[in-house]
Design a binder for these strands. Structure first.
Lengths: 234, 234
DNA sequence: CAGGAAAAGTGCGTGCACGCAAATTTGCGC
DNA sequence: GCGCAAATTTGCGTGCACGCACTTTTCCTG
C-alpha cells in the first residue's frame, strides 16, 4: 500500500482549475482497485467458491470490515473488476457521436461498443461469471449503473422539458440491455420463471452479443424518435 | 397449522377439469400467508427493526429455516403482505380491457388500477415501508414481479413475431413503474446519485400516484404503438 | 390400505452484511 | 511543523442467508 502516490499541485485542464484528487481520494481508488483485482485473481485461481471475503481483504491489505465499506457483497468486487468504469465510458461514447444522428442509433451503437469491447480480460472471465448464478446475477445488476449517465446524456438532447422522459428511457435502455445480456450468457435450459407463458417454445437461438443488443433496443427506438420529435416541436 | 383445509374432489371450471390444489399446495399457501401476515403485524406492532426472522417464524408456527424457504430476506415477507397477488391481478386487469383500445392505454390504466387500489391496508402500512430504506427498496423490487404477466399479455397482442419485443416492453413498463413509485414515496431530499446531472434543480413536485404513473408510462406509448402497427402490417 | 417416491420442514454449521464506537489517518489553516 | 476537524479504517457483536443432510408429511399406485 505504498505505491507511487505523490504529486499534488493545481493543474489547468481545459479552461477550469482542476484540483487533482488529494491523497485521500487517490488512496481510496487505489484500495477499491486493489480489492477488485484481488477478488478477480483469487476467483480465477481457486474458483469462485473457494474465495472468502476475508481472503480478498487480506490480499488487498485491508481489514475484512473495510471490504464491506467498498462492496456490499462478495460478488460485487469480482464483477466490478470487469465492469470497472463502464459508466463513464458509455457517457463519453454517446457524447462523442455526432448530434445529427437519431438519438436511438447513437445510444444503440454506444452501448454495443461498450459491451463488445473486451475489457482486456473476457476469455476466461466470462466462463467464471457464467459458472455461478450469484455471479451472473451480480453482473446483470451492474446494468443499472448505466442509468445515471444515460439519463444525463438523453436529458441533454431533450432539453429541460424532457428530464422526466429521459429518466424513463434510460431505465428502459438499461432493462433492455439486461435482457440482451441474459439471453446472451444463458447457460442452457430456459430455467427462468416461464409463468403463464413458457410452454410455447424456445424463442431466441442466442445470436452474437451485438445482435442481441440491437434486437433488444430496437423496440424502444420509436419512443426515442417521438421524444426527439416532441423536442423539435417545442 | 390445523385450519379448515379439507375438501378435495374433481371440479369443473369453465370447460376443463381443474384438479383443485391438494393438501400440499394448500398448506404451502397457508404457510406463506401466515408468514406474510405475521411479518406485517409484528412490524407494525413493534417497529420494523424490532422484528427478527426468528420472531416471524415463531408467530407463523414454523422453524426459522423454513422462513427462508419462502422468503429470501427479512424484508420480503413484510412487503409481500402488501403486494400479495398483484401480479395475477394485473394480468387479469389487462385481459379484461377491450381489445380495441391502444395497448399502451390498456396497460397504463390496468397498472394504475392495481397500484391505486388500497390493498385493504395502506394508511399506516405506507408509513412503515417508507420508514426504512431497506423496506422501501424491497418494495420497489417487487415491481420486477409484474414483468412475466405483462410479457404474456403483450405477447398475446403482438403475436409470435413480437415475443422478443414483448419482453423488452414489459421490462420497460416495470422500470417506469418503479420510477413512478420512487418519486411518489420519496421521503424528501433527492438523496440519490445525482451523478453529473443533479445540480440543475428539482424536477418533480411529487404529484398523485396516478399522475406519476401516467407521466412515467407516457414516454413508452410510441413504442407500443409502433409494435402494434407492425403487428397489423404483418 | 400398504408401501415407496417425492416434497416440504427442520437443525446445524459457515460465511457474510452491517451498525456502532473507538482508533487512525488526512486535509488545511496558522 | 502544529493541531484540530473531518474522513477513513478497524474490531466487535448481532442477525441473517443458505447449503447440506436428515426427518416428517403428502401423494400416488397397485
Amino acid at each position: 500500500m505504498h505505491a507511487n502516490l505523490r504529486a499534488r499541485s493545481p493543474v489547468w485542464k481545459g479552461d477550469t482549475v482542476t484540483t487533482p484528487p488529494g491523497l485521500r481520494e487517490r488512496k481510496k481508488q487505489a484500495t477499491r482497485e486493489a480489492l477488485r483485482e484481488a477478488a478477480l485473481r483469487l476467483a480465477l485461481e481457486r474458483g469462485p467458491d473457494q474465495v472468502r471475503v476475508e481472503d480478498i481483504a487480506e490480499a488487498a491489505g485491508v481489514s475484512p470490515r473495510t471490504y464491506n465499506n467498498y462492496f456490499a457483497s462478495r460478488e460485487q468486487a469480482i464483477v466490478a473488476a470487469v465492469t470497472a468504469d463502464r459508466e463513464a465510458r458509455i457517457a463519453a461514447a454517446i457524447a462523442t457521436r455526432p448530434a445529427g444522428v437519431r438519438l436511438a442509433d447513437a445510444i444503440t451503437e454506444a452501448v454495443i461498443q461498450q459491451y463488445t469491447d473486451p475489457g482486456e480480460h473476457d476469455p476466461e472471465v466470462l466462463l467464471l461469471i457464467t459458472s455461478r448464478t450469484t455471479l451472473r446475477d451480480a453482473f446483470l445488476d451492474t446494468t443499472a449503473g448505466i442509468e445515471p449517465p444515460l439519463t444525463a446524456v438523453i436529458a441533454e438532447r431533450l432539453g429541460d422539458a424532457g428530464a422526466h422522459t429521459a429518466r424513463v428511457l434510460a431505465a428502459s435502455v438499461a432493462a433492455a440491455v439486461r435482457i440482451a445480456l441474459e439471453g446472451w450468457l444463458r447457460p442452457d435450459g430456459t430455467a427462468g420463471t416461464a409463468g403463464s407463458f413458457g410452454a410455447g417454445g424456445l424463442v431466441v437461438p442466442s445470436g452474437s452479443l451485438p445482435d442481441q443488443l440491437r434486437a433488444a433496443l430496437a423496440p424502444l427506438a420509436p419512443a426515442f424518435d417521438a421524444a426527439e420529435r416532441r423536442r423539435l416541436e417545442h
